[in-house]
Structure formats: structure tokens, C-alpha cells
């Protein structure tokens, strides 16, 4: 069998990235949009760690720790915004969050 190289991991990361982008652009439920953003960030992390293995140093892994920390902060704030909005308008569909529409 073909030995697993960096390229295989990059392909998996790209697939997850594209799935995340489709989720962000097409779904109506805000929570699922936020989960797709987490998919994108995971794909980025996988990319970073794969390159860290390829170059043989640990900078990619440290960067991926920072990306994870960032994703946690962003998930918390994003869900806070969602709850605050849900209290006002009682909907979680991105189609119906159109208070600023003229």
C-alpha cells in the first residue's frame, strides 16, 4: 500500500474545509452554521499539524493550540450572541434575522 505522506493529510483537511464552507453558506440553522465554522477551524488545525510533522519542528503544533483557544473563545461569544438574539426574536434561522432590512 502507498505509505501515508503529508499529502494525504492535506487532502483530508481540504475535504473538511470544503464541507465546512458548504455548511456555512447553505444551512439555515444558526447553530449548525457555527458548527460548520468549527469544522473549518479543525481542518486548519489538521493542516498545521501535518506541516509541523513534515518540517520536523513544533511551531505548527503550537500555532494549532492557539487556533483551538481562539475557536473556543469564538464559539462562546457566538453562542452568547445567538442566545441574546433569540431572546428578542424567537428564531434561529439566518433567513429571518433581517431586522436591518429596508
Amino acid at each position: 500500500m502507498v505509505p501515508i505522506t503529508t499529502f494525504h493529510y492535506l487532502v483530508v483537511a481540504a475535504a473538511l474545509f470544503v464541507l465546512g464552507v458548504i455548511g456555512v453558506l447553505t444551512r439555515r440553522n444558526v447553530v449548525i452554521v457555527l458548527m460548520s465554522i468549527e469544522l473549518i477551524l479543525n481542518a486548519v488545525n489538521l493542516n498545521l499539524v501535518a506541516f509541523s510533522r513534515m518540517w520536523g519542528n513544533l511551531h505548527g503544533q503550537v500555532f494549532s493550540i492557539f487556533v483551538t483557544v481562539d475557536a473556543a473563545a469564538e464559539a462562546a461569544v457566538g453562542l452568547g450572541i445567538l442566545i441574546a438574539f433569540f431572546r428578542n426574536k424567537e428564531t434561529i434561522n439566518v433567513d429571518e434575522i433581517d431586522l436591518l432590512k429596508w
Binding site: 493529510y9 473538511l16 499539524v49 501535518a50 510533522r53 494549532s64 493550540i65 483551538t68 483557544v69 473556543a72
Partner: peptide
């Protein structure tokens, strides 16, 4: 993805992924 990190010889990132994510 955490399992893939283990395969990439990144055990600490695996633990961080389990814990945080």
C-alpha cells in the same frame, strides 16, 4: 481528527483537542 493528530506524533495537541473541543 484527534486520532489523526495521534498518528502525526502530536500527543499534546490530541489532548488539547479532546479537552477543549
Amino acid at each position: 481528527v484527534a486520532g489523526l493528530y495521534l498518528m502525526l506524533y502530536a500527543p499534546f495537541v490530541f489532548a488539547v483537542q479532546l479537552f477543549v473541543y
